[in-house]
């Protein structure tokens, strides 16, 4: 398991990284893929193969003090180029 942070970028167009997870820190649960980059596929281009990570977050990390139950968790699939190491931060 590695601690990772989801990039905070907000580009226009089709990306598969949910807005509510941008900038949040989680741990990688497993690595999948490689899968073609959906940001290429969505516009009719062949997709660059990328690792896909299942990243686990706590509800406290995502929603802060508004979390319904802070220790509940959420997992999502995030493509490698949207993740950066969180340990240096």
């Amino acid at each position: 398991m590695h601690r990772v942070k989801v990039r905070t970028d907000m580009p226009p167009g089709h990306v598969r990284t949910p807005s509510y997870l941008r900038g949040k820190v989680g741990v990688t649960e497993r690595v999948l893929g490689p899968f073609p980059n959906p940001e290429n596929l969505a516009y009719g281009h062949s997709g660059t193969p990328l690792p896909l990570y299942r990243v686990r977050f706590t509800m406290a990390e995502i929603w802060g003090a508004d979390a319904e139950t802070p220790n509940d968790t959420l997992e999502a699939e995030i493509y490698a180029h949207w993740l950066e190491p969180a340990d240096a931060a």
């Binding site: 598969r16 990284t17 139950t69 509940d72 997992e75 999502a76 699939e77 995030i78």
Partner: peptide, 15 residues
């Protein structure tokens, strides 16, 4: 119960 962790899976990509 609170003692049961709820884990949400956002099916965001290929799985």
């Amino acid at each position: 119960p609170e003692s049961t962790e709820v884990r949400v899976h956002d099916s965001t990509a290929d799985m």
